[in-house]
Each structure stands twice: as C-alpha cells, then as structure tokens.
Simulated assay, not measured.
Amino acid sequence: MKKLLKWFTPLLLMTVLWSCSNEQSNIQTEIKIPVSVVSIKPQSISRFIETTGTVYSSKEGTMKSELGGIYKIQRNPSTGKPFALGDAVKEGQVLIRIEDKEFVNNLQIESKKLNLELAESNLTKQKPLYDKGGVTETDLKNASITHVNAKYAYENAAIQMAKMAVRAPFDGVIVELPYHTDGVKIEQGQQLFKVMEYEKLLMDVKLPEKHLPEVTLDQLVQITNYNIAKDTIKGIISQISPVIDADTRTFKSVLQINNDKHLLRPGMFIKAAILSEKRDSTIVIPKETIISRQDGKVVFIVENGIATEKRITTGLETMDVIEVVSGLKINDRLVVSGFETLRNKSKVSVLQ
C-alpha cells in the first residue's frame, strides 16, 4: 500500500499543477482590451490661412458747408424727428439746409430764369426770319450768344442755390453729426455730417510670403468676431499686391466682406480664415488616434474582434483632424480610444 501511495502522489501532484497551468493560460488567452471605434465615412476637410485685422467701410463721405448761413437741420420722414446719429439715409436726401436771404436775393435766380425764357423765344423767332432773309447771320448769331449767356447765368445761379441744401452723397448711415444749434449762423467750410455705407466692408491684411502662390482673387474668406460667435460671415479676396515687403517678408491683400445684415461695424477687430485648399469625400480621422513611429504613422482598426495595425499616409490637416491618403478605406472601424496599449492582432472588446 505504501508503495502504491508513493507512486500515486507524484502523479496526482503533476496533474494538479498541469490543471492550474492550463487554467491560467486560458485566462490569459481570454483577456480582451476594451476599445471604442467609429466607422469611417467620407468627409470634407479644408485648410485655412488665418489672419486678423480691423475692418473699415467701403464707402464714406464727409459733407461740409459750401457757404455760410443759418443752420437748419431737417426732419427724418422715417422717424418724424430731426436727423440723428445712426439714421439710414438715401442718396440725394436733404439732411441740412443753409438759409441766407441776402445770398438768395443776390443770385437773382427768378430774373435770370425769365431772361433765359426771353432769349429762347427771341432765338426761336430769329431762325425762320434768317431762312427768309429777314435778318442777317450776325443777328442770328447775336441771338444765339444771348441765349447761351442767359442759360449759363441761370444754371450757375441754380448751382449756387443748390448749395443751400446739403444732401446725402449716397445710401448709408449717419455716423458723425457735429452739434450745431438750429437757427444759428455757421461759417463756410464747417463739417455738417458724415455718412458711411457698410453693407460691404474692407480689411487690409499682410500675409507671409510663402502663402502668395495659394492666394487668388475672389478666394473665399470666413469672418468671425467674438460679438457674432454663432455667425460666420463670408467674404472674398478683392485685391492682391504682387510686391513682397523686403523688411517683413509679407505681401498685402484686401478682403471684401459681405455685411448685408450689419452684424459687423467699421472699426471692429475680426479674425479672417482664407480657404487655401479643400478636399471633398475623403477619409478624415482625429489626429489623436495616430501613433507616430520612426518608420511612419500607424492607426488601429478592428476586424472580427482583432485589432489590426495599419500604416497610413496623410494629407491635409487642421488643428483636430487629418486626411488619410492611403492605408484606410471607407467603412473601416477605426479605434478612437484604448489604442495606446494595443499590439498588432490584439484581441479587443468593443465598447458600445
């Protein structure tokens, strides 16, 4: 019996050890690394040249008094009140009148108008008489000279009279309106108001020399400002200087911005992103999923519960994403979290 136990005990011990070892091996084999994946779909990616600057109006005009007289600000028919800062005005609309009765009397515009009518009547009579030989050529020419002089005299008087009504030079908004007491006399040359049109805004930018080949006329620009964070305003490149500044190694461009909703104001500091390149229907992945190695860049995809290493070639990139030119295909399941501890052909458990 002792001999039997002596033989059986080592055999039992070996069986137990083998069983434990096999169980541990199975446990190790079944360990799966938890990961999150996304299915790759075609996307677009754009690269921008970013710059900042201050916008200014595309059109502005300052109106001054061309003669002295009594200051009379007019009422805005839209508000029923005297014109004020911020009022929208139309081209040719009278904002201020300068009254001077003595000036008007000296123009003698009514008498000059009557004189012109008489000269026109006389010239009309002289022409058929000349055709019939009733007057000489000299008489006809004198009548023509009298008519021309009367016409110029009346037109000049009308031009001077028109200076008494100060009109908006174009459609726009009153942005400056120096205060003058209504009914007081002002002198010639005083500033009366300033009008701006800012449905189109401009911005001067200086871009690094390396971007010159990428910038073209009418190229799309996206405009943002902290006051309009929810809106992106569009613009274009309207002018490009071909000269490089020798000191700064930059070239000047002018951006034209569509501001028909008046979200921007002249003088605002804004950020402009010039679209330099765009790719549509391409593979785009988060930059953080890429592992950089000495021999290149790799990512992991999941196929049948196995993480497979894929070497990739990249193209356009932004701050957060990058284009994959080769190495991946549409509908590949890209590992976006948990890839840090993966090895090629690691077993994974995909988290939902």
Rank of each mutant, 00 (worst) to 15 (best):
M1W: 02
K2C: 08
W7D: 11
P10E: 01
P10S: 04
T15Y: 00
V16R: 03
W18V: 15
C20V: 13
E23K: 07
I27Y: 13
V35I: 02
K41W: 11
I45R: 07
E50N: 11
T52L: 04
S57E: 07
K59E: 10
K59H: 10
S65T: 11
E66W: 02
G69E: 08
K72Y: 11
S78M: 14
T79Q: 09
L85V: 07
D87P: 00
K90H: 03
L95F: 12
E99Y: 02
V104K: 06
L107C: 03
S111M: 10
L116T: 05
L118E: 13
N122I: 15
K127D: 08
G133K: 09
G133L: 10
T136V: 03
L140M: 08
K141A: 04
N142A: 07
A143D: 00
S144G: 06
T146K: 09
Y152L: 08
Y152C: 04
A158P: 05
V166F: 03
P169Q: 00
V173Q: 06
L177E: 00
H180L: 10
D182A: 10
G183C: 03
E187K: 14
L192H: 14
L192E: 05
V195H: 09
E199I: 11
K200C: 03
M203F: 01
M203C: 10
V205G: 06
K206W: 15
E209G: 02
L212W: 00
L217H: 09
D218A: 15
V221L: 08
N227D: 13
I228W: 08
I228H: 11
D231S: 08
I233P: 12
I236A: 13
I237S: 03
S238M: 05
I244L: 12
T248E: 01
R249D: 06
K252N: 13
K252I: 09
S253A: 15
V254I: 12
L255F: 14
L255K: 07
P266F: 07
K271Q: 07
E277L: 05
R279E: 09
D280Y: 12
E288D: 14
E288Q: 14
T289W: 13
T289M: 09
S292D: 14
R293T: 14
F300Y: 12
V302H: 01
I306W: 01
I306R: 01
E309G: 00
R311D: 12
M319D: 09
I322Q: 02
V325C: 02
V325L: 05
S326H: 01
G327D: 05
I330E: 15
V336Q: 03
S337Y: 04
G338I: 02
T341Y: 00
R343Q: 03
N344M: 00
K345Q: 06
K347I: 05
K347A: 14
S349H: 15
L351R: 07
L351P: 13
L351K: 05
